[in-house]
Design a protein around this nucleic acid. Structure first.
Lengths: 184, 184
DNA sequence: GTCTATATACCGATAGAC
DNA sequence: GTCTATCGGTATATAGAC
């Protein structure tokens, strides 16, 4: 059990517990016990509890940053928007525990100092798939496309069916929505 | 300032703070201060902190119960499903702070004893608008219709535009989705 | 890097006077 | 119905030995 990977192990366990039980209901004692160390050891690696989740966020949110950056350089075509949705779904799946945590603890996340930056990214993404002069209904369609991806990742587990098939269907619905949002 | 409405005032302030800051981060001391009473006074009206939110939920979730009951008695037609969505949007709007709280504090709500019953109701509603034998894509469309209503109520405030117009557009998108979900 | 021990603060909840 | 006072518990965080 010798290592330099304790920091990483703390993040892994913390995210698991945060996503499962919520941020405030997960104590540092609980995280420490799960790792067979003491609370004090945690404080060697992270200055505060909030630092733990900030570290996790910075590590795992990079794909979203890259997606936002990439989206900003593309022409605002239907194909681009569809590719944004495809990549966003992939990003959601790659970091499901983090996004589940953000999703189910919004009230907590909101003033966690990562909250604002996350919302900024989300609104950026929304802007890239919007058509500024389109009627309200089409704007709603575009927003709903993103929400369909969220629903598919975080709620569809309550619906029976093969997970792969569900994900594919979710993507299709999102792509349809963005196509309709583009139209006349 | 004597009267019998203290219980109601506690619920009002509590829900406001719960929705704003989250359940765990809102202390009874804070609720009491806002009402210019002491914590002990709260305990005269409610046995525990959880009882406060349970009471709020029972009072405000009745429209949802009625909707679920009504939906169960209707034929499973497109018209019924569209009416369910219309009524659901209305219910969301009528109790926005409660649903915002449930939405943004899922991790907390999940084991709050109201959590399960709420999820049951939600899944019931979902069942009523689903077509059991339809392809996965149509099931996703139906779920997305509900989520579009949620998105419209809790996220669209970040999108500029007249609130009434937004709500109308959201409903239209949801109705379109359920219609497509019914189709071939 | 991890430990023991502890400081400090706040929480939910209760007892009992008025 | 509301108060003062307090209990018991747990939380985050720190000091200092090893």
């Amino acid at each position: 059990m010798a290592r330099g990977n304790t920091r990483q192990r703390i993040q892994d366990v913390a995210l698991e517990l945060f996503a499962e039980q919520g941020y405030e209901k997960t104590s540092l004692r609980e995280i420490a016990e799960r790792l067979d160390v003491t609370k004090a050891a945690l404080y060697y690696h992270f200055k505060t509890k909030e630092d733990i989740i900030i570290g996790i966020f910075q590590d795992l949110a990079r794909p979203i940053d890259e997606l936002v950056a990439w989206a900003g350089e593309q022409p605002r075509t239907l194909e681009t928007k569809q590719e944004i949705l495809r990549r966003y779904q992939k990003a959601l799946r790659a970091a499901t525990p983090l996004f589940r945590f953000m999703h189910e603890n919004q009230a907590t996340v909101r003033d966690l100092s990562i909250g604002l930056t996350f919302k900024e990214r989300f609104l950026s993404l929304n802007q890239f798939i919007q058509e500024p002069e389109s009627p309200m209904k089409n704007k709603v369609r575009a927003v709903s496309a993103i929400f369909a991806l969220h629903a598919g990742t975080f709620f569809m587990e309550n619906v029976e069916g093969d997970p792969e098939e569900k994900q594919e269907a979710v993507l299709e619905v999102a792509l349809d929505l963005i196509e309709q949002a583009q139209g006349a």
